[in-house]
Design a binder for these strands. Structure first.
Lengths: 131, 131
DNA sequence: ATACAATGTAGAGTTTACTCTATGTCAAGG
DNA sequence: CCTTGACATAGAGTAAACTCTACATTGTAT
């Protein structure tokens, strides 16, 4: 319903919107992650759609998917609905990876807590010794 | 109580024990993360203590602490008990970082699940259309 | 019309964390 | 005695993901 559907963003605006540097946006384009239209003067025109897409790219990246793989996903995506199943498969694989990642971090979290408790004791003791 | 306390490991053995390549071990030493003794022939002699220390280094690394910071921690550690408080402070900071990391990943996990559900629906629909 | 800010491309440079190569030493087995 | 294999150092090379530079165009405010 919103006018937003017709908004076009320059690379500068899009950069601010997505918190990705202009350099990074051009790099992502070179790597086939994003493919904005160009206007008559060859300037990039990003859309609302690109905003959402970049948010998703960032999600994949922040969960440890390498650029190469995101590139692959992105290339599938631009081939249209015939690649839906393959893309879902990738996401399911990635979810598995993410679940494992979280489990490992939670284990590390426990151990780190133990270590900190251990330090607390050690410091208490060495303070006692000083008195 | 175990004889383990007197065990010494060559770099090859230690590499197998810790799952770090010999190259990586030498690199970590250059970066001041580990400081094994040397025998008369200048060969590195790792101890049980080093095994535990490397496990901890790996924990810090796997939770996203950069080598530089681990190096700093390690240098504090080798200064002895006078640095206990500062080291604990580092760990507490790092725990904070880790907690945030886990929260973010959990949020990503939810969104990824949504996305996969969305794909599932979309695929179901496009299959229906084919019939 | 002119200046200056934003954008374009191509390609070089940076950072992190390894990883590998070249070359040399030394102890133990055949 | 000689070769082989593990180890030593110094320094070069690599991969990923940016990040920056140089230089050319274009859009906009005065």
């Amino acid at each position: 319903m919103s006018r937003g559907d017709f908004m076009k963003y320059s690379i500068g605006d899009f950069s601010k919107l997505t918190n990705l540097s202009i350099h990074t946006l051009r790099y992502y384009e070179k790597e086939n992650l994003i493919s904005p239209e160009r206007n008559s003067a060859n300037r990039r025109c990003y859309t609302e759609n690109d905003v959402k897409w970049v948010e998703f790219i960032k999600r994949l990246k922040d969960t440890g998917m390498p650029i190469k793989e995101i590139k692959h996903y992105s290339e599938l995506r631009s081939k249209g609905d015939s690649t839906l199943a393959e893309r879902m498969e990738m996401l399911i694989q990635h979810r598995q990876f993410l679940n494992e990642q979280i489990s490992k971090l939670q284990e590390h979290q426990l151990k780190l807590n133990d270590k900190i408790d251990f330090y607390r004791e050690k410091i208490k003791t060495s303070n006692t010794e000083i008195r």
